[in-house]
Design a protein around this nucleic acid. Structure first.
Lengths: 346, 346
DNA sequence: TGTTAGCACTCGACTGTGTTGAGTGCTAAC
DNA sequence: GTTAGCACTCAACACAGTCGAGTGCTAACA
């Protein structure tokens, strides 16, 4: 027994209907709404075949069929092959971003917000990560007679601030001089490399050994932290409106998973550099999410670092819409981070 | 009819039992578990009186009584008057904070996490706000030939970064010189004041007019933003485990309220400078939270700016525990922000 | 050989009916 | 003022019956 074109059409109809209603779909429904030229009995036979092939499942004997993960996989693969429909959301995307925000974190927050309202599911946006960021500038800014803030500018525009103690009474000019020396010595390095160069610098700047030590600590910390950076989440409450989450226990598990950002980030983080990743149900490997699908896409910054955007929804999510919205958003973010417009000074 | 001491004891017992079980409590329960010297009939009479006084309510005629908001109010007022019990969590508090983190945002995130696990409810921590922050230092850090990052250090240690365009080819030393001038001119100002001084500076630094204009934009933006700063939330999933949220619609409303951080912040933000605020049920004025209680406390930074920490739970929350934990946390945070230890350089 | 009509069967969802038990209010006695 | 007793109420639960959507199978038809 093989998949012929008609079986394909029927499967498609079942998936479409199930995505819409979340109710097991029966043969009569298909025969009346989709394949009007065929009787329900014929559909029944075909459905029986489809079940044998593993594309359909029956919750119980006297209910309709629901698509299996395998069916969704087929569906999505076809969708990706044929090119998803790019809808108008691409044009309207920019209208969702209020004004011109230049802080990466804010943009990411907003992106998650927009994604979730546009899709109706839960959205996650990850700050660009991947390869180690490269230091571009180091500045020591005094904040009290004894402490200074270390501002680390990396090529992602990302700022990591940390406090170090400085010798009492060190004046701003000295701080600046040190900052310049440090920047010259370490710009272009990853935190890990910077850490290795500290001993070398120690020799050159003997008088500030203590300070350098502190800096070393900061670099190691940055290296150790897998650091998914900022993780923005939006539309968590959306999930509760889907019948698959009427079970409180499930909802709770989902929620607490989403709350632990680190875990969430490592689930979403996309490996490889394909445009889209679609993980359906059990494919995502997270037991708490065995009946969720995760769709991710990437965006990239000017310096080539990659960020991930993702949508989490029930397995019966509207894949085509989600893919389209994610595509647009990815492109939009890439633009936004790729060639930053001059700030709006009003 | 008046509240006598026995009525008080019975009311107390009812509240205690209801907080524990969330089940309407009947006269027999009280007579057996709390007031063993009285028969259920006597309790019944007293309960009838208490209902007339507005302290108890009956969900339906043949069920036990549940405490009204007024009862909780009495209960909490007494609790506050007698001084809440400081439990050991004060000592153990610091063990919950992993290592020594120096980034305010991280600390706040962790605080929300700790508060929610310690209480079992939803916790919210607000960055210090209140009066306008005062500028302490301004640094321009170049990030590309044409753009610079404006690092604003305020007395809260808070960093707000924004990007401005700079004249092409401006070298770091010039940037530093400008930074120094700016710092000297504006340190001690609030963003609003700084904004007003821009025109004056314009005269002095004619060659950098454009840059100053951009800075002005940043200041106004900071002024306009009511800016509750960072809002950390923890333990949202906790709420789903309480029977009062078994109703999906309610849970959804709660969740989406918590998701809109701005709204949440303005609800939590505590006015006045009392140590604790307890808003019970309808008292909090938020329709979506009419059956939640909100308990808040404050902490303060070295510079006297105030932040708020809060716990949101069902009306029948364990007020004494929550108050105690909030008290400890407030003190701990104040310590943390008040006299920052030297960073751990490993 | 594929399609269709018909029929028996299954089973979840819903409905209506008791039954139970926790709880109350009231009254009368202590 | 306290308590025992009694009638009453009402949510929760269990049980049985009905309904309807859906299936599988068989036989007839093109």
């Amino acid at each position: 027994m093989d998949m012929d074109e008609r079986k394909m059409r029927i499967l498609q109809a079942i998936i479409d209907d199930y995505i819409l209603t979340a109710v097991p779909v029966g043969s009569r429904t298909i025969s009346k709404k989709y394949e009007t030229s065929l009787s329900s009995a014929t559909i029944r036979n075909e459905m029986s075949d489809l079940e044998e092939l593993g594309y359909l499942a029956q919750p119980h004997i006297s209910a309709g069929r629901i698509p299996s993960a395998k069916a969704y996989r087929l569906y999505v693969d076809q969708l990706l092959k044929n090119g998803w429909i790019r809808d108008d959301s691409d044009d309207t995307m920019r209208t969702y971003f209020s004004g011109r925000v230049h802080q990466m974190e804010k943009i990411i927050d907003q992106a998650a917000q927009v994604l979730s309202t546009l899709t109706g599911y839960t959205a996650v946006v990850l700050e660009p990560g991947g390869q180690q960021p490269r230091i571009r500038n180091i500045q020591l800014v005094s904040i009290s007679p004894e402490t200074a803030l270390v501002v680390l500018v990396t090529d992602a525009g990302l700022v990591r601030d940390n406090v170090v103690t400085i010798p009492r009474g060190m004046d701003p000019d000295t701080l600046y001089a040190i900052s310049r020396t440090l920047t010259e010595a370490l710009s272009g390095c990853t935190p890990a490399e910077a850490c290795d160069r500290i001993p070398v610098l120690m020799g050159r700047m003997r008088e500030n050994a203590e300070l350098l030590q502190s800096l070393g600590g900061i670099f190691t910390k940055n290296r150790e932290e897998p650091g998914h950076g900022h993780v923005a989440v939006g539309g968590v409450s959306n999930m509760l409106s889907y019948p698959e989450y009427s079970d409180m226990e499930k909802a709770r598990n989902f929620l607490s998973l989403v709350e632990t950002r680190d875990k969430l980030a490592s689930i979403i983080a996309q490996q490889g550099d394909v445009a889209f990743t679609v993980r359906i149900g059990p494919e995502n490997g997270v037991p708490e999410m065995s009946d969720c699908s995760i769709v991710t896409a990437t965006y990239s910054t000017r310096s080539g670092r990659q960020g991930t955007i993702g949508v989490i929804g029930p397995t019966r999510m509207q894949y085509s819409r989600v893919l389209s919205v994610l595509g647009s958003m990815g492109q939009h973010l890439s633009e936004l981070f790729g060639n930053p417009d001059e700030p709006k000074t009003k």
